[in-house]
Amino acid sequence: MNILSIILAAVLSPFFIGVVNQTKAFFAGRKGPGFFRLYFTIGKLLRKSRMLPENSTWIFDIAQSASLASVAVAVIIFPWTGGGGVSSFVPVAFFFYLLAAGRFLTVLGALDAGNAFEGMGSSREVQFSAFAEIVVFIVLGFLVFLSADTSLSGVLSGIRVEDWKDNVIPLVLVFLAFVAVFLSENCRVPFDDPETHLELTMIHEAMLLDVGGPDLAFALYGAALKFELLAAFLVMMVMPCFGSGWVHAAALFAGVGLISVAVGVIESVMARMRFLKSPQSLMGAALIAALAVLVFICF
């Protein structure tokens, strides 16, 4: 059942990106590209040959594959059915270090191409992720404190209904802080605009300018998986655990769908922040998370 849920997660992830895009299309009054557009794009890209910048080395060659592999391992260890399996042995820090490894590889791949835009994108990416990392680990510290468990599944399924009754304020604050991380790590508005077509305003897309063919398919699929993973993390922070199994998995995926709609709404009603504001907002999120910890400990 665990393996089935992992396969389901792997298959569904491009669909959620479709949900975001359809929501945006609905707000803009367009027909939209359809819920399954990303599947076709990935299929098309996989059949193409690769195009490498002439100056690049083996780092560029393996960067996207290794990056996708790190996210794939993160998908495998995630407790999709609410607990048990590998996830109860995995330290919660490992999960985020896997995602960091994937990002490190993408950044190296971008630097290997050796042009100005990719350097710019990777420079911004490491800056934002450094601040996001602090927020993530304060939130994790809070969750460990709350759930009295240090494993990935323990932390995520340790939130009960009573916790929501007793500690509404810190939980809401922590949730808000993690929303900021979720948007920033997935390169969504207001931190990054996935639809911008000007190289100078890109962050994540700028790192992929020279990536093509199957490598681009891997990069797009990896981004979709990461979106789904962090959205699921967000859902499990809110959702009090009601037993393991299919009910849990179904509720989880429904929650991810809701978050996708919410992301689409945010992107339709908001513009991207100035670049200088993004690190400040993430520092603000870190302070909010720290405040949540203080509120939780003191009251």
Partner: peptide, 20 residues
């Protein structure tokens, strides 16, 4: 997998790096 799905004979080409 990447090697397997690629069309035979034209696995990769090199090009100039993108500078607008």
């Amino acid at each position: 997998l990447r090697r397997f799905v690629c069309p035979r004979g034209k696995e990769k080409r090199t090009s100039l790096v993108w500078d607008c």
